[in-house]
Design a protein around this nucleic acid. Sequence first.
DNA 1: AAAAAGTCTACCGGTTTGGTAGGGTGTTTA
DNA 2: TAAACACCCTACCAAACCGGTAGACTTTTT
Lengths: 149, 149
Amino acid sequence: MLTKKAYYAFQALTHLVEKYNEGPVLISEIAEERKIPLKFLENILLHLKNTGILDSKKGKGGGYFLKNSPSEIKIAKVFRLIDGPIAMLPCVSLYFYQRCENCNEKFCGLHDILVEVRDATLAIMENRTLADLILRDKNPVGGLVSPEM
Amino acid sequence: MLTKKAYYAFQALTHLVEKYNEGPVLISEIAEERKIPLKFLENILLHLKNTGILDSKKGKGGGYFLKNSPSEIKIAKVFRLIDGPIAMLPCVSLYFYQRCENCNEKFCGLHDILVEVRDATLAIMENRTLADLILRDKNPVGGLVSPEM
DNA sequence: AAAAAGTCTACCGGTTTGGTAGGGTGTTTA
DNA sequence: TAAACACCCTACCAAACCGGTAGACTTTTT
């Protein structure tokens, strides 16, 4: 499960994507609109800044904003920055790999299954970006093609 | 990430699958061979018994054993019994669903992505069973078909 | 200089995790 | 029938993590 920290991070990023190119956004605005505890959000945004996702401006007219285009930041990256490994065991992780002491990966059935899970998860998370977080109508009244038919 | 409890559970189950139809297996045997703290393992096996995966026999010649055939127990089930939800957010979970307060699922991009992740994960975990945990040779010297070619 | 707004350090209570201790209970066998 | 065997049950515990708070500090703008 995602931690609340990661959940809040994604909410805040969603907000910043919606306001992309509208200049810096106040922490307090995000906190209020997304119902995130202010001081907790401060930590999160600062962390996202220190890891290169966000940038900020102090003083009047300041706030936080995305450093790069939303479509350049993969969901997987954000996830790893906040919550760490995506894989379900260290011996299956690409970015946080650690050998497991008690089992031989070559003959561990669990290892196999969790590698599959990891790959299936990454196939999605590495191909979605912050741009995919924002509102799109999921049930358009008319279809895309031949809406009258 | 899996908790240690779940990891140990899968190790113990793997052991019991290997000894399936050889009668009850001692907790102490599993603990020793799989290097799992004995008293911790007791808890885990008892839990797996109480939830219907395992059965046990007391007294001399006793021990734990699988209640049903290994191929009848899905990996997803064991996972849920020990670690709970497979989904990454409560609002995306099938077995542990909870509405999220701050966002409208219909217009939440994160929700969409995590539903995809859930489905991809379940496609694997619901189609693998305890039988898939045991040793198979992953790199046979000869192929399955026309090994000489 | 004052106000605005992010930055930094520190702390803290509650829950979960990963165990440990020790006696209780049911079964088998000598 | 009693000893040995092996699981069962309750309770406890330390460390880590999670979610959040407090408050002073720095930088920027007006």
